[in-house]
């Protein structure tokens, strides 16, 4: 599975290569940051890490705020 992930990441970079070559350093930095985030999320999904799942975090946040208000 992880191999598949890496392959797909390589594929994405290959598709974007034409743009990447013309991009500035800042562009590439943000680009790779997004890719790393995507990779981490996919990894988290594969490994079933549920600690930082956004919906849960938001849910507890919302509940605590509503609870705090009322």
């Amino acid at each position: 599975m992880i191999i598949l992930l890496v392959i797909s990441l390589a594929l994405i970079i290959a598709i974007d290569l034409r743009h990447l070559l013309a991009a500035t350093k800042k562009d590439i930095f943000i680009y790779s940051a997004l890719l790393v985030a995507a990779f981490m999320v996919a990894l988290a999904q594969l490994m079933e890490w549920k600690l930082l799942v956004p919906s849960r975090v938001i849910e507890s946040l919302v509940r605590s705020i509503i609870g705090g208000m009322g």
């Binding site: 797909s8 974007d16 562009d27 680009y31 997004l34 995507a38 999320v41 996919a42 999904q45």
Partner: peptide, 17 residues
């Protein structure tokens, strides 16, 4: 340039959430 990684991130989030 950012379109592709953003889509991938959104797909990952949609499955993980």
């Amino acid at each position: 340039l950012l379109a592709l990684p953003t889509v991938v991130l959104a797909v990952g989030l949609s499955l993980w959430s």
